[in-house]
Simulated assay, not measured.
Amino acid sequence: MKKVLLLLAKGFESFEASVFIDIIGWNLVDGDKTTELYSCGFTQEVNGSFGVKFKVDYLISEININDFDALAIPGGFEEYGFYEEAYHPQFLELIKQFDKKSKIIASICVGSLPIAKSGVLNQRIATTYNHKNGIRQEQLKAFGAILQNSPIVIDKNIITSWSPATAVNVALLLLKMLTSEENKNHIKKIMGFDV
């Protein structure tokens, strides 16, 4: 079984988290049945953006990265405190440990910023949120990443993207990397994303 860890910081964007939950879940039920998703955060209940509350499976302190095959990081809103936890040393260390073992790290929108802040995107290509005068893209570059102005960027084991609009495709790419192109296409079709 391939296990995905959904890493949630306070202020996470619920839509971006939900695509990982759904696509990995659909595969467990109607795909090749080889993927499971578990969530973690600093607290048992993580407060997301817009008043969303999410009860996680694990605390970050309980995670053994050897138990997981991939890490999924949704973005979030500064207004809801996203960077307070996304830039926490323990959050960044978890990212570093996944990369050190060449495990897949999939992020959406500003979920790429903690990856870059951790140092693992130094001199690697990546992207992030591309609106609001490009401030997030400038931050990404300041952390040492090489900005590629594309909706989705893959550099070896790391997927980054630039907005919530890319969320479904990022989750499908993660599924493809964990299983196969054929299985990814099957899930895409039965979820109605192939029209």
Rank of each mutant, 00 (worst) to 15 (best):
Val110Met: 06
Ile63Trp: 07
Glu78Ser: 14
Asp32Val: 14
Ile95Pro: 01
Phe91His: 09
Gly48Asp: 04
Ile65Met: 03
Ala70Asn: 06
Tyr83Leu: 04
Gly75Thr: 07
Asp57Asn: 15
Ala72Cys: 00
Ile63Tyr: 01
Val46Leu: 02
Ile60Asn: 02
His88Phe: 03
Leu28Tyr: 15
Gly48Arg: 08
Gln90His: 13
Asp30Leu: 13
Phe91Lys: 01
Ile65Gln: 10
Lys53Trp: 07
Val110Pro: 06
Leu113Met: 00
Thr43Trp: 09
Asn64Gln: 13
Lys53Gly: 01
Lys53Ser: 11
Phe77Ser: 14
Gly81Asp: 03
Thr43Glu: 15
Glu36Gly: 09
Phe82Thr: 07
Ser49Arg: 12
Glu78Thr: 13
Glu62Asn: 08
Leu113Phe: 08
Ser102Leu: 13
Glu36Trp: 08
Leu59Val: 06
Ile63Val: 13
Gly31Cys: 00
Trp26Thr: 13
Lys33Ala: 11
Ile105Tyr: 09
Gln44Phe: 09
Cys109Tyr: 06
Asn66Glu: 13
Val46Tyr: 06
Asp99Val: 11
Ile105Ser: 06
Glu93Thr: 14
Phe68Gly: 02
Leu113Trp: 12
Gln97Trp: 01
Leu113Glu: 05
Pro74Leu: 00
Phe82Glu: 00
Lys100Asp: 10
Gln97Pro: 05
Glu36His: 11
Gly41Lys: 12
Gln44Arg: 15
Asn27Ser: 01
Leu94Lys: 11
Ala70Pro: 08
Ala86Cys: 04
Glu78Phe: 04
Trp26Asn: 12
Gln44Lys: 15
Val29Asn: 13
Gly51Leu: 09
Gln90Glu: 15
Leu71Ser: 02
Glu84Tyr: 10
Val52Ser: 11
Pro89Ala: 05
Lys53Gln: 11
Glu62Ala: 00
Ser39Gly: 07
Leu94Arg: 12
Ile104Trp: 13
Glu79Asp: 14
Pro74Asn: 01
Gly81Met: 00
Glu85Phe: 01
